[in-house]
């Protein structure tokens, strides 16, 4: 299993950089991953990340649609916060597995 260092802490990741142990995640680590992805985390980002972590912990399969219905962001804002591939980027920064959804 691969390991990666973020702000002085070593975490377990898979070869795509997604956490394999979600409990190793902290806000500081999230900030460090976000910078690698070219994103400066705002409070809004952190709200989205908390929602993602809570949903995934509850066993939900994340989709772009479910993010739009989160009550935190609409779909357009979600794309604005995590430009490019928002679901992939946001889950990576949130320290949860890469979503397998097509939607």
């Amino acid at each position: 299993m691969a390991q990666k260092q973020f702000s002085g802490v070593t975490v377990d990741v898979n070869d795509e950089g997604y956490f394999t142990n979600s409990s190793q995640w902290t806000i500081d680590i999230a900030k460090a991953i976000a910078i690698e992805e070219g994103i400066q985390l705002s409070d809004k980002h952190i709200d989205v990340l908390s929602f993602i972590r809570k949903s995934v912990a509850g066993g939900a399969a994340l989709t772009i649609r479910s993010m739009g219905k989160s009550g935190i962001v609409d779909v357009k804002e979600f794309y604005g916060l995590f430009p490019g591939a928002p679901l992939k980027k946001a889950t990576k920064i949130a320290g949860v597995p890469k979503p397998t959804s097509c939607i």
Binding site: I64, R65, S66, G68, V75, K76, Y79, I103
Partner: peptide, 18 residues
């Protein structure tokens, strides 16, 4: 059931993402 939206909402997802 699989969270696939109706056609108009699907198009909204597409255009919201550019």
């Amino acid at each position: 059931k699989l969270d696939i939206p109706p056609v108009d909402e699907f198009m909204e997802l597409i255009t919201a993402g550019g």
